[in-house]
């Protein structure tokens, strides 16, 4: 079951005296928690248990969640630290023009002519632009995820096409 679950948040604290849960959302999908009926709670995807969602308030990175059978602060405090998962089938689509990070990791980077330029190992979310951390010839290359450089992303085929401007794939510490 572990591979079929997707992490959407984590319970960080109890909220109020009626069993409310303060949740750190990891989801970028607007209104993600307000549409939920059931969630899976657990420290790891291998060991989860279902819980029914009664109410969800707030949007963005902090959400207040109310679960069935959790109606006082003591019950809520027992749940602090648990992750919130949903099954793959319940995953929302990424916002327009964006891609889920777990879909990007492992993608092959190549030029328009098909020249291999590495594999995406991580994604950094930075203020100017997101950065794809690419492993190429045994070293780390940072690729700005902007349309001028990353011209095509196909997560279904795990392929990313880039416009390799001069200096992008060179070792910056070389000289």
């Amino acid at each position: 079951m572990a591979q079929d679950l997707c992490l959407i948040g984590s319970i960080v604290a109890a909220h109020g005296i009626r069993g409310g849960l303060k949740v750190q959302s990891f989801s970028d999908v607007p209104g993600r928690f307000s549409r939920l009926e059931t969630v899976l709670l657990g420290h790891a995807p291998e060991r989860v248990r279902p819980a029914v969602v009664v109410d969800a308030a707030g949007d963005g990175s902090r959400v207040i969640l109310q679960l069935e059978d959790c109606d006082d602060r003591e019950a809520a405090e027992l749940l602090v630290g648990l992750n919130i998962y949903v099954e793959d089938a319940e995953m929302a689509d990424p916002p327009e023009g964006r891609h889920f990070i777990h879909d990007l990791i492992g993608c092959t980077v190549q030029t328009a002519s098909g020249e291999y330029r590495g594999t995406v190992r991580d994604v950094m979310l930075l203020p100017a632009n997101d950065i794809y951390v690419v492993e190429f010839e045994g070293r780390e290359v940072l690729l700005p995820a902007v349309p001028a450089i990353v011209t095509m992303v196909n997560t279904a085929e795990k392929a990313i096409t880039v416009e390799p401007i001069a200096g992008l794939f060179e070792d910056p510490d070389a000289d």
Binding site: S10, F26, D130
Partner: peptide, 29 residues
């Protein structure tokens, strides 16, 4: 939209892991 800002503002000196790793509904451009 970056005009008037400093270059250093866009190259953070501290790493903040803002996505949890693993399979999550966190997206990138």
């Amino acid at each position: 939209n970056m005009i008037g800002h400093k270059l250093g503002e866009f190259s953070p000196t501290r790493i903040f892991r803002s996505h949890p790793g693993g399979k999550a509904e966190k997206s990138s451009r």
